[in-house]
Amino acid sequence: MSPDPESHTVPIRVLIVDDQPLVRSGFSMLINSQADLGVVGDVGDGAQAVALVDSLAGRAEGPDVVLMDIRMPVMDGLEATHRILSAHPGVTVVLLTTFDLDEYALDGIRAGASGFLLKDAMPEDLLAAIRTCHRGDAVIAPSTTHRLMQRFIDPPKPQAPADPRLDELTPREREVFELVGHGLSNAEIMQRLVLSEATVKTHVSRILAKLQARDRVQLVVIAHESGIL
């Protein structure tokens, strides 16, 4: 597998957090095989992850992206995600889930994780997710993230009050927001609305600011919870 075309002079630093040594070893070999990625550590539970990120904060070997398992002993990935992102907002967290068992993945996204992957994802999907999240976007493939949210978000109550932040959106921003909520990428939104890439990016940036959302994943959460889909 070749590295992403947008290679980095300094490799993206990745911390692997999983209670299974074989999983950590496999991920490490895959990530270290890429010229633009590098593993700075691997630990077996959330408490160790929090301690390591704290100790490396501000140092050259501090992680850019944390691959975080959800179900672990001592401290699970959800609590660890909350603690890491509360103290170090510049770090990106990608949750790892078995999907059928991890019913709390949505809580991790609400805590600020930039997305999640199935543990049996293809290697190229894992590598792409690391690069995508490091660029400030989110992993939100309709085949994974969207289905998980549909499964675990309660249907909105008919009389539930509307989110007042939605009133701040212009009609065009509302259109873009709804398409993001359905899991469409910028390229797909460009085609659907016949807009330029720069225009779509501008709309998404403004929507993120107006809805006070960290990334596209949280926009999907807001779209579902507000009942606009």
Rank of each mutant, 00 (worst) to 15 (best):
I228E: 06
A35F: 00
L22I: 10
G181A: 14
P123A: 04
C133W: 07
N32Q: 10
E103F: 07
R192G: 01
L118R: 05
V23D: 06
A49N: 10
D42W: 00
Y104E: 13
G58W: 14
S55D: 09
L85G: 03
I140H: 08
L127Q: 02
A160R: 14
P155G: 04
D167Q: 15
N32L: 08
R71H: 00
A213L: 09
V10A: 09
T81P: 02
T145V: 15
A60F: 09
G26P: 04
V53E: 06
E188T: 07
L169Q: 09
R216C: 08
Y104R: 14
L148V: 11
S205D: 13
L106I: 15
P158A: 13
L22E: 05
V43A: 02
L166W: 10
E188H: 03
Q48D: 12
G136Q: 03
A213H: 11
V39T: 12
L208G: 05
A213Q: 07
S143T: 12
D42Y: 00
P73Y: 01
S114W: 05
H88P: 05
G41N: 07
G183H: 06
S25Q: 15
D107N: 08
L148M: 12
S55Y: 03
D45K: 07
A187Q: 12
S226V: 09
V74W: 06
P155H: 06
D18V: 06
M122S: 13
E175P: 01
D42P: 02
A60V: 12
A113E: 01
I31W: 05
P142Q: 07
M190K: 03
V91E: 02
E103W: 00
V50N: 01
P3M: 11
A113M: 05
D64F: 00
R83A: 12
V176A: 06
R147E: 13
F116W: 08
R214E: 14
R216E: 12
P89V: 07
R172Y: 00
T81V: 08
Q48L: 14
L95Q: 03
A209D: 13
V93G: 00
L56Y: 09
T170G: 12
T9E: 15
N32S: 08
Q150Y: 07
V40A: 05
L179T: 01
D107L: 08
I31E: 04
H203I: 04
L52C: 03
V200A: 02
T145P: 02
G112S: 09
M1R: 05
E6V: 10
A128W: 11
D163W: 15
M122A: 15
C133E: 08
S185A: 11
S25W: 14
D42Q: 00
S28C: 00
Q159D: 15
L193H: 09
S7F: 12
L95I: 11
F27S: 03
P5E: 12
A49R: 09
F177Y: 13
F177P: 03
D36W: 10
V66N: 06
E103R: 09
A213D: 06
E175V: 00
E168K: 13
R59D: 13
A111P: 02
G112M: 07
E168D: 13
L30P: 04
G46V: 04
E79F: 11
A51G: 11
G112Y: 05
C133D: 08
G183Q: 09
D19V: 03
P158C: 10
A57G: 10
T81M: 07
T202S: 14
E124K: 07
V220T: 11
N32G: 04
L195M: 15
V176I: 12
V39M: 11
H224W: 14
K157A: 14
E225C: 10
E173R: 07
